[in-house]
Structures are given as structure tokens and as C-alpha cells.
């Protein structure tokens, strides 16, 4: 059992938790993820490692409530336990001194880019952080990102905070004003449409772009093939070959179709919770 030692509520749908998992905390690196299962009936869901504390033996996760499991998790409190928590999974981000790197985090994707930005800066890169969300209420970790990056740009889609617009606007601007040859790498993490949009922009400028794919997963160890995706015409398993890939090579249409396959069931699962008989009021 894995204890929730701290919970922070960023907004109604975005929450942070520190989970006691010393084995994971000991060896994890930026870019890797964990899989958790809340209880006996639970589904295994992947979440990126947003931060870690090797001394305390804790892993930080930040998640957005989108369905049954994330809502159930969001309803849990400090001191409660999660049944299964396995990691670190996936390959770590490739960190070296590239030069100037644009690190783009969209929505809940701000969390996973944080450790990558930190590691890149430690490796001597000029890290340009670009974070954005739909609206002010959904923005988090501006302070942490400011500390992790060399410079930080913030956007909201609706202009309720900072600059109005999208991360892609900032990428364009920087590529135009500073010159594309002065940008070594772009890393973009967030919802699929956001990553795809970033890739469309960076393709124009010929900027190498790494994305972190959120395919559906079951085991996360290369055993089931549920997470397969076509990259450069070849089938890859996101959980062991990734989760990071060259965004210009990813078959986004396939990824998004595969991600939608269980939508009906996900809806049923979410509705079921509200009729549960245990008296918990739907939190389960």
C-alpha cells in the first residue's frame, strides 16, 4: 500500500499528490512515469512523475480529473492509501547540453515538463519555458517553472491571465525573433491537440520536437501491446520505447483514434460510481 502524504488542490479538476514510494523515488528520472491502481476493482492508469524527493522517498503526481479513476483519486485525502503504484516506467528523457531548448507545457502537461526543464537547466542549457492553460483557474506551478527555467512565458487561451493566446504563438515568435538556428530542441507535453499543434509549427521551422505520448496502457512493461503507436511507419510500444518520441514522426490520427476506442465504456464506468451502494456518496 502506498500512502498519500500530501495533497494540493490546484483547481476543481487539477490536483497534486505526493505518494510515499521509496523504491520509485530512489531511481526515477525526468520523463518517466508510474502506473497506479487505487483498489482491487481499479484500473491501472499511467501518470507522469512530476517531481520526486529521494530523501523523503516520495513521488509527486499531478493529474486532471477526466474520468472514473482520476475522479476517484481526486476524492482521496492525505493519509489514505493507494493499493498499487509501480515505476519508474518508460525511458528517461534524453538530457544533455543542447544549447537553447524550448520546453512547452500545456494544461496538466505543465507537471511533466517541470522535471525535464529542471534537468536540462542543470545540464547547462538555456531553458525557455512556455506554459499555458485554457484559463487562469487551471494554471499552476508558475513559480516552480520560473525557478526551473532560464526564462518563462505564460499564456492563457482566454486571456484571463498573462498573455492571451497559445504556446504555439510564443514558439513562432521566438523562432522568428531569435532565429530557428539558435533553437536546438523543442519539447512539448500536454493534451494531444496541443502537442500536434506545436509539431505543426515547429515542422515549418525545421525544429526537432520531442513529445510525450499518452497512449492507453494496461501493464506498462511491454507485455500487452495496448500502447502501440506508429512512429515513422514503425510500430512502437509507448510504455517501453517511449513515452517520448520525435513528434514529427508520430501518426497522430492513429493515436487519437486508439485513445477513443473505449469512450463508451469510460462513460459507463464514470456513471456507475454515482450509483454505488457503499454509502460513500460516490467517492468510492
Amino acid at each position: 500500500m502506498y500512502k498519500i502524504v500530501r495533497k494540493e488542490v490546484f483547481s476543481q479538476i487539477i490536483k497534486l499528490m505526493d505518494i510515499e514510494a521509496p523504491k520509485v523515488a530512489k531511481s526515477c528520472q525526468a520523463g518517466q512515469f508510474i502506473i497506479l491502481r487505487i483498489d482491487e476493482e481499479g484500473e491501472r492508469i499511467p501518470l507522469t512523475i512530476a517531481d520526486f524527493d529521494r530523501e523523503k522517498g516520495t513521488i509527486t503526481i499531478v493529474f486532471q480529473e477526466v474520468g472514473k479513476t482520476t475522479e476517484q483519486l481526486g476524492a482521496m485525502e492525505e493519509g489514505q492509501f493507494i493499493q498499487d503504484f509501480v515505476g519508474p516506467l518508460g525511458e528517461p528523457s534524453h538530457i544533455e547540453k543542447f544549447g537553447t531548448v524550448l520546453v512547452v507545457g500545456g494544461g496538466v502537461g505543465i507537471a511533466p515538463v517541470h522535471p525535464i526543464a529542471k534537468a536540462l537547466k542543470e545540464a547547462g542549457n538555456h531553458v525557455v519555458g512556455i506554459i499555458g492553460s485554457r484559463t487562469k483557474e487551471l494554471l499552476f506551478w508558475e513559480d516552480k517553472m520560473r525557478a526551473a527555467c532560464t526564462e518563462l512565458h505564460v499564456t492563457t487561451d482566454d486571456g484571463s491571465y498573462a498573455r492571451k493566446g497559445f504556446g504555439t504563438d510564443v514558439i513562432k515568435e521566438i523562432a522568428e525573433t531569435r532565429g530557428k538556428e539558435n533553437i536546438a530542441l523543442v519539447i512539448a507535453i500536454g493534451p494531444q491537440p496541443m502537442m500536434k499543434a506545436c509539431c505543426n509549427v515547429t515542422r515549418e521551422y525545421g525544429l526537432k520536437t520531442v513529445v510525450s505520448l499518452n497512449a492507453l496502457m494496461v501493464d506498462g512493461t511491454g507485455m500487452c501491446g495496448c500502447c502501440r503507436v506508429s512512429v515513422d511507419g514503425q510500430t512502437k510500444f509507448v510504455c517501453v520505447d517511449g513515452p517520448e518520441f520525435d513528434g514529427h514522426q508520430v501518426d497522430w490520427a492513429e493515436l487519437s483514434k486508439r485513445g477513443a476506442y473505449f469512450r463508451e465504456e469510460e462513460q459507463r464506468s464514470k456513471e456507475k460510481k454515482h450509483t454505488c451502494k457503499c454509502g460513500c456518496g460516490g467517492g468510492k
Binding site: 479513476t69 494496461v218 495496448c226 465504456e265 459507463r268
Partner: peptide, 20 residues
Amino acid sequence: EFLTRTNLMKAYKFPDYDTP
């Protein structure tokens, strides 16, 4: 995947079990 969803994750008991 087919057998793991069914056996390990008990998808045959969906929606009592969460994995579809």
C-alpha cells in the same frame, strides 16, 4: 492484452471492475 484485460483486470466483471 485480450487475456490480461479479461483475467488479470477482470474485465468480464466490468463495470464492477473498472477495466473495460
